[in-house]
Computed example of a mutant assay.
Amino acid sequence: MSLTANGKANLATSPKTSISSEPIIIRRATLKDAPEMGRVGGRVYYDTPLTSWLWPHRAKYHAQYERHWIERRLALMLNPRNESYVACSSSGQIIGAAQFARLGDDAGAWKRIREIGVLRRVFMWVAAWVFWGYCKVRWWLEGGDKTQNKEAVETFASWCRVDGERYWGSHEERASRWHCQSLVLLPEWQGKGIGKKLMAVVMEKAQRDGVIIGLEASAKGEGLYTKLGFELLGRFTGEAGAVEDVGQGGMMIWYPEGYKKEASSEM
């Protein structure tokens, strides 16, 4: 599984639909792409049980709901450990996006950070703080977030911390990894191999670095990752599982070829 030298990947043609015959371009995302990346994510997850629980008033305050997604995309992109990619149709429309982070303190992780350059790292650090302050002030001026169930958001964050420590933090050997922070694809473009092409980007990097890939799979996304060779480490906490489809989704891991797996898959 690989991308062409110019970053393009063509879907197999099909006489049934014009969508399936369009050439798809996978490219590195820029900060200008963040708004559309956010809108794609907001649309993809709009009707999921988790979204309905966290943002019950998203229909009434749709602009705020979209802004959550856009701000998150930008915040991730301003981290020097992050790499973001978009999938575009032949017309240039962003139809999907993926964001990955190179975690750890190993030589490979620091080599990548150094390659970014000191000036760019300083710019990203300053921009991240300015953006954080801007977001705080803007939400304050609007009288706070009207889309959220604040108690649900705090509860969900606590579940994430528990699972993060259980599956990643308590396993020193998993600290050095690429982590898939987000993968979204518009519904009408799903099932055409585009998600695999986006994941191919990080799988090639992980194979080159000799490190694992970790991610949190939704109930719907678990099938894709399984086909790509990811293994399930464990389901989300019982409470989180009750919000999503019970018994589906969870923490998943991918091992590069030749990687010495852990002696135990204990969760």
Rank of each mutant, 00 (worst) to 15 (best):
L76I: 12
L76F: 12
L76Y: 09
M77G: 04
L78H: 06
L78W: 07
L78K: 06
L78R: 08
N79E: 14
N79L: 10
N79M: 08
N79Y: 01
N79W: 01
N79C: 12
P80G: 03
P80Q: 07
P80M: 01
P80V: 00
R81E: 13
R81I: 04
R81W: 11
N82M: 11
N82V: 03
N82Y: 01
N82S: 15
E83D: 02
E83V: 09
S84N: 09
S84C: 13
S84P: 07
Y85N: 07
Y85W: 15
Y85K: 01
Y85E: 04
Y85C: 10
V86Y: 02
V86T: 11
V86K: 00
A87R: 02
A87M: 05
A87E: 04
C88P: 01
S89H: 09
S89T: 14
S90W: 02
S90A: 15
S90G: 12
S90N: 15
S90K: 15
S91R: 13
S91K: 12
S91G: 11
G92Y: 11
G92V: 08
G92I: 06
Q93D: 14
Q93M: 06
Q93V: 11
I94C: 03
I94N: 02
G96N: 00
G96R: 03
G96Q: 04
A97C: 05
A97R: 05
A97W: 00
A98D: 02
A98S: 13
Q99K: 08
Q99D: 11
Q99A: 14
Q99P: 02
Q99G: 14
F100Q: 00
F100A: 04
R102G: 11
R102K: 13
L103Q: 11
L103K: 08
G104C: 10
G104W: 13
G104N: 08
G104H: 14
G104Y: 13
G104L: 13
D105W: 12
D105E: 15
D105P: 01
D105Q: 10
D105G: 08
D106T: 07
D106Q: 10
D106I: 12
